[in-house]
Computed example of a mutant assay.
Amino acid sequence: MTEPQLGASYDDLLAVAQATEKLGFDAFIRSDHYLTTDDSIDGLPGPTDAWTTLAGLARETSTVRLGTLVSSVTYRYPGILAIQVAQVDQMSGGRVELGLGTGWFRREHEAYGIPFPEKRFGLLEEQLAIVTGLWSTPLGETFDFAGEHYSLHDSPALPKPVQSPVPVIIGGAGASRTPRLAARYASEFNLPFVPFENVRPGFDRVRDACLAIERDPDELVYSLALVTAVGGDEAEFARRAARVGRTTEWMRGNGLAGTASEVVDRIGALREDGVERLYLQIHDLQDLDQLDFIAREVVPQL
């Protein structure tokens, strides 16, 4: 899971995505931001658009899954987003996953003239209904929607993605509204960068929300995103933690961090808490050796 707004060109992302595929990881995921989210980093050479990037990678990879964690509802109208994602799914042969959220970074909206309403949860709920509704409308039929924020009339609901349905990722640490939306629309629920002790309770809220609408909670994938720094020894780990801008102590307490054996133990504990998929947030996109190390020294022990 990459954060290109911190500084990455398309060629940088292509190198990481192709290394991800070659090394046997399941997916290459990117954030969807237009401004650096760290004031200490200039973000050069500047932002790359998430779905433009994924469209390119769809043609330059063959097996790795591709998606966002997560796209903001403020960036794209839902009808256009449905077209973009369906097209990238076609271009990739059915390897796309859509993460969708409310957005949070006001300053990037101000920098690029994007409206940032104070209340955005209603936008998210309607976008989920529209995007999934457009994709699921049978060929030859039309789709209509009348909501508070969006209205669609007599839409041909085209194009269709290859996958039916496209996996939809909904995430967050909210106590009630987010679990309810995940239960209704998501194929995966993601907890982003939460303390370890909050993982099981966060998943339990979604399971309860599924039961409330008589959906089998096991239909969802339960995932966790963690900042990652792993090394063959303490010195190498410390160097990678510094590249993240964190101390080794902070990393061990909050991330997927340390030596290979420490990371294997942490993943085992997370599995016991119900984690089924892990997103490794990689900050240094030039450090392909770290991906190679994880693939060689961590993954075979799982």
Rank of each mutant, 00 (worst) to 15 (best):
Q90P: 00
A8H: 15
E236I: 13
R205G: 11
L13A: 05
T178F: 13
D287T: 09
S62Q: 15
L134E: 12
T142P: 07
R120E: 08
L81F: 07
L69C: 07
Y75N: 04
M1T: 11
T52P: 02
I114L: 14
A19S: 15
T259C: 03
A82Y: 13
R252L: 06
V70P: 08
I114T: 14
S92E: 07
A182V: 02
S164D: 13
R205M: 10
A82H: 04
G24C: 00
T2N: 06
I267R: 11
Y222C: 08
R215E: 00
G140T: 08
H283V: 09
T178P: 11
L152E: 09
K160R: 07
M91C: 11
G231W: 02
R106V: 10
V96I: 14
L291C: 12
G232Y: 02
V244G: 09
S9I: 10
L13Y: 04
L6S: 06
E108I: 06
V199S: 10
A82P: 09
F121Y: 14
A257L: 01
S62V: 00
D38A: 10
E219Q: 12
P179E: 13
C210L: 11
R246Q: 14
V70W: 06
V230D: 00
D32E: 10
S155N: 07
T63G: 05
M91P: 08
L220E: 01
L124Y: 14
G140C: 05
T248R: 07
L280Q: 14
E276A: 04
P78L: 09
L226Y: 02
S92R: 01
D287N: 03
G46L: 00
N198R: 15
P47Q: 00
D12C: 06
F189N: 01
E197Y: 11
R266T: 08
D204P: 12
A27H: 09
P300T: 02
S155I: 06
I282F: 09
E297Q: 10
S40D: 03
T259V: 10
G43Y: 07
E3H: 14
Y185W: 15
G140H: 04
V73C: 06
R271A: 10
A58Q: 10
V230S: 06
Y222P: 00
L14I: 02
I130Q: 03
F189I: 11
E108M: 04
F189T: 04
G93K: 11
R76I: 00
P179F: 01
S164Y: 10
D292T: 15
E126F: 03
Y10G: 02
A27C: 00
H149D: 03
V206E: 06
E188G: 00
D39N: 08
Q18P: 01
E214K: 05
E148H: 01
T228F: 08
T20F: 12
V162E: 12
Q281E: 14
P117K: 15
G133D: 04
L211C: 13
G94I: 13
P78Y: 10
E236L: 15
G268K: 14
G122Y: 03
R106M: 12
S71M: 13
L302F: 02
F143I: 00
S92F: 01
T102F: 05
I213K: 01
